[in-house]
Design a protein around this nucleic acid. Structure first.
Lengths: 233, 233
DNA sequence: GGCCGAGACTTACCTTGTAAGATCGAGTGC
DNA sequence: GCACTCGATCTTACAAGGTAAGTCTCGGCC
């Protein structure tokens, strides 16, 4: 096999932890997290699976790594925000920061699932949380209240929270909606709710939620509650 | 091989979807969700892996199934609650229901992770949500507000929400806390918060949270916000 | 007895993560 | 120029795991 400067493909770019992790994100973006296997990842890099193990200890470390990459991306976007966070400004600043996290995660739909499995201690995630707490401090929060606030926000702090029903893929969704219809009489409130709320987007049976609006509603509910506590403190 | 009535082991209890799913929960309870493989599950049932496929289509269906089993357990516990939900009582009723969900999930620590991956449409989960909405209706919620409320609660409605830092297993936790210390100067707020809040449980570096308290704090924050909206509606 | 079908078993294949060792190539000292 | 070293990559191989396909085994019924 002639190795000397193959013309078409890039000639021998060395691997590196950085390159491996960035490629992993790309693979997941293209084919979902299930498609991220060591072999496929290597293929994407023009290398063999085992070569990756020189740069990462194992697949777990790849997953830890891509969380850090994504969190870094979030920090980049959030870092460009420039709104005052002193006093009452804290709420807007926190809101913006969280919404930029969400914006990034919407570009990587597989990422929330990975974050959740990670028992996260990624440096970038730590920095993200630290900055959030900082904004609350600017708003006059005690550390104790900030601590409670972080828990109250939960996964919403990172820009996601479990959606109630995701339509999912074709076959499963079809069976699910059939099942739902057969149970309709046992679910009066759910059905009632759907009947009333399903006006704007009447084509899909279950995906009638404007997820962005729901997300912001929940976020604001929490932020408003915290703001009230902050004021009476 | 003599098949006729082996004395020690139970003599030929037939498999069934029910039995398979219940065994799956037990396996996950004992060894974590990673230990739930078709072969191990079969072994637990005194059968061969492939025999399970007569009762469930594939492993995905096992996972769907155990979500339903757990949700059924939640419904059983929640069904025994008997507090009035009319008018202002809604909040207590919802609170109790959610806390019993949490109680069940704490007995199955692997379950939240499975719920999250499920694109859930399990009958029992639907019934659970339906009942929650019903309680809100009793409290005078419009369907629209109830809908927003469900999203605001997010995964908290099911009795869990992502914990910020889980200590995890020994080796990982050790490396994580070393990394944390090396970054401490870049995380002033996080460190400040820990210093102040870490009084009650000073032995563990990171697991200083009373998770139950945090959970209830966030839950109440949301419920109180909703209650205010309900009254002004 | 012969048939049949539900339910369980056997075999075998493919994908995945990864351990162990071979190889390759750019420096480096001689 | 040549051997030696060592970081980086490739080869080979294996153990789990999910599951497709086919086989065996009864108990009930004609």
């Amino acid at each position: 096999m002639a190795t000397e400067s193959v013309p078409g493909t890039d000639p021998r770019v060395p691997l590196s932890r950085e390159r491996v992790l960035r490629a992993a994100v790309k693979v997941a973006d293209e084919g979902g997290i299930k498609s991220l296997t060591m072999r496929r990842l290597a293929e994407h890099l023009g290398a063999e699976a085992m070569s990756l193990y020189y740069h990462v200890a194992n697949k777990e470390e790849v997953l830890d790594g891509i969380v850090d990459v994504i969190a870094g991306e979030i920090n980049d976007v959030a870092g460009r925000i420039d709104v005052p966070s002193e006093g009452a400004g804290w709420k807007k600043a926190v809101r913006e920061r969280i919404l930029s996290a969400r914006e990034v995660l919407l570009r990587h739909p597989w990422a929330p699932g990975v974050f959740e499995t990670r028992t996260a201690m990624s440096p970038a995630v730590l920095r993200y949380h630290d900055a959030l707490i900082g904004l609350m401090r600017d708003g006059g929060f005690s550390y104790d209240l900030a601590h409670q606030a972080m828990h109250a926000l939960g996964s919403r702090a990172l820009g996601f929270s479990q959606e109630l029903f995701k339509p999912g893929d074709g076959a499963g969704a079809e069976k699910a909606s059939a099942m739902f219809e057969s149970m309709a009489d046992q679910l009066p409130h759910l059905v009632g709710m759907m009947m009333e709320v399903a006006h704007d987007d009447p084509d899909s049976t279950l995906g009638w939620c404007d997820e962005q609006a729901e997300f912001e509603f929940g976020l604001d509910l929490v932020l408003d509650g915290l703001d009230r506590m902050r004021e009476t403190a």
